[in-house]
């Protein structure tokens, strides 16, 4: 897996090429910059790829996903217009670990304990969320995933995409 600096440089290079080519997707944001990458793990905890924020006006207005070899898989916008900059996320993970932990706490059942949040892709790369694994009586109980939409829970170990016919 490439390091944080290489991931940031790969994202910055691709961004600068898109801006130089006047890509219409980035037209509302003339001067975003690549910020500090965040590692995205898979559900089992293995490093999967880097999520590099594209920052403007102190907000994460977009992101690039950079794989383990430094290849930019995706690059684009989370926030499509600067008109409502206050609605753009402050962090590329959309929520901080503390916010995710607090959201998960509100859905914990009696006797259920929560592990620290991990930033994962819940399903294929791109479906990022905070994952809080819970246990009860020292046994895995549930997986709670948290995004700005809220917290949802399912039995521990149940993976998105296991059923090939469902999306």
């Amino acid at each position: 897996m490439i390091g944080r600096d290489e991931a940031r440089a790969a994202a910055a290079d691709t961004l600068s090429a898109l801006l130089a080519a006047h890509d219409p997707l980035f037209a509302p944001w003339p001067e975003p910059e690549a910020g500090a990458p965040v590692m995205v793990e898979d559900l089992s905890g293995a490093p999967s790829y880097w999520l590099v924020p594209l920052e403007a006006k102190g907000r994460a207005i977009g992101a690039a996903r950079v794989d383990e070899r430094g290849h930019v898989m995706t690059i684009g916008l989370i926030c499509r217009t600067p008109d409502r900059i206050e609605a753009c996320p402050r962090v590329v993970t959309l929520l901080t670990a503390e916010e995710a932990e607090a959201a998960a706490r509100s859905v914990l059942g009696p006797g259920e304990t929560a592990s620290p949040p991990r930033f994962v892709h819940d399903g294929p790369p791109g479906r990022e969320a905070w994952l809080i694994e819970t246990s009860r009586d020292a046994r895995p109980a549930r997986w709670i995933t948290v995004t700005p939409g809220g917290a949802t829970a399912r039995p521990a170990g149940q993976r998105i995409g296991d059923d090939p016919g469902l999306e």
């Binding site: 977009g62 995706t74 995004t147 939409g149």
Partner: peptide
């Protein structure tokens, strides 16, 4: 150019992302 409805949000105007996705980086089913 992908219009991805993730991350989910009850407010449909508040979530999702638009991005250029490398054709070869993804398993298209």
């Amino acid at each position: 150019q992908v219009y991805d409805p993730w991350p989910w949000n009850a407010d449909i105007c508040a979530g999702g992302a638009v991005y250029w996705e490398d054709w070869d980086a993804v398993n298209h089913t």
